[in-house]
Design a binder for these strands. Sequence first.
DNA 1: CAGGTC
DNA 2: ACTGG
Length: 283
Amino acid sequence: MSRYCTLHLEGDALPFDLDRTLSCGQVFRWEKKGHWWCGVLGQKPVLIRQEGDLLHFSGAPEEDISRYFDLDLDLEEILAGFPDDPILLQAIDSAYGLRIVRQPAWECTASYIVATFANIPGIQTRLKLLCERFGERIGDGHTAFPSPEKLAASPLCDIRSCRVGYRDKYLCGTAAILSADHGWEERIAALPYRDARRELLRLPGVGKKVADCILLFAFHRFEAVPVDVWIDRIMRTHYLEEDTRYSYDRIADAARQIFGPNAGYAQEYLFAAREMIPDMRKK
DNA sequence: CAGGTC
DNA sequence: ACTGG
């Protein structure tokens, strides 16, 4: 491991909370060992820890760290731009400093395909198995995320052996399409939100929720609002009508209407605080 | 029962 | 439908 560097957090880089950012369930491959978070950035193992407004790290240049954690984003302004409602304010307070990281697009896509209808520990196990089975060794016992080419060329039974169940064919199918489609990231990035989502929806295993996760977490389209069971419940309980069923887009549109153009960020804070937000059953 | 999709 | 915390 290379030498350690320290980044002094100031200006737009504040607020920033590394623990909340890496443990909120947006990324699945970081592991905390003692004070240090261990993960992979690009193709390199990285160690990182926060001490107040100091960010200590090794294994990657400062520019990569700053870009990954989106430290040039004026998060304070985004949070200040949200409406003044008690539920969201409580969520912001409890997860203050959480930043949406810039996930590599393929890793994000593959992760959320295998994440459907599963819980977070299960997702972590699956991704670890996939990385060990198909990822390139990059030293220190770390592996890079498996390339789409590698997964596209692997038998379904090998993929399924990583406990992904029926999602094996989605993962393999999407890997095949994307590995043959050089430039897909640039194309998605250049499209307006609706068109970008329509494009992603053509991938097997990618529905509206997964597509919105990809757009929010990899492409930083903050108008993308992934609506999972938790967000559905929170929106119906506190912002819509509890006993009514709403379509996916109806809830996402309501979120954009209520929270504005950065509704995706509001979604992430509500998700992070999901356990603390009152459930309708408890009322 | 868990951050849905076909 | 898989799968396991």
